[in-house]
């Protein structure tokens, strides 16, 4: 597409004064610093999250082991849950009632332990941060 000569000449000579470059770059640097700060905070959260997940896994395995041991010591003839139905799925899972209960209990116990420890840790860190800000 052809360029209009008059308009081209007009825009070629367009060199207006700008606001102070130093002030502009300082403002931009401040914003970039703030972004970096948020990025670091996010990375730290991600690290904590990964750390928490590994703790959940370990606690889950340990709780599972504890519940398995408990299950081994309970009498075999005691059913953990029963139901009066002919539904195929229910009759299929019935012999595994102990394992199912164990899995659920392990899951909830590990979740509860982890959440409680995380809340304690977070509260401790918050207190530490508050002390830091106050200085």
């Amino acid at each position: 597409m052809e360029k209009d000569k008059d308009l081209k000449a007009l825009f070629d000579g367009f060199e207006p004064e700008l606001t102070d470059e130093r002030v502009f770059m300082e403002k931009l640097t401040c914003k970039l610093d703030a972004i970096e700060c948020v990025k670091q905070e996010r990375a730290s959260h991600r690290r904590t999250y990964r750390y928490m997940m590994s703790i959940v896994f370990v606690v889950g395995v340990m709780t599972g082991a504890v519940f398995y041991a408990l299950m081994e010591f309970t009498p075999n003839y005691t059913p953990l849950f029963t139901y009066d139905t002919d539904y195929t799925f229910m009759s299929y899972i019935s012999p595994y009632s102990r394992e199912i209960v164990m899995i659920f209990l392990s899951f909830f116990a590990s979740l509860a332990i982890t959440l409680i420890s995380y809340t304690i840790y977070d509260t401790y860190m918050m207190k530490k941060r508050d002390v830091g800000y106050a200085r």
Binding site: F11, F14, E15, P16, L18, T19, E21, F24, M25, L28
Partner: peptide, 16 residues
């Protein structure tokens, strides 16, 4: 940045 700001100044019709 200078070129971009100049361009945007024209785009914003002189509104610095």
């Amino acid at each position: 940045q200078k070129k971009l700001r100049r361009f945007l100044l024209a785009l914003c019709c002189g509104n610095y």
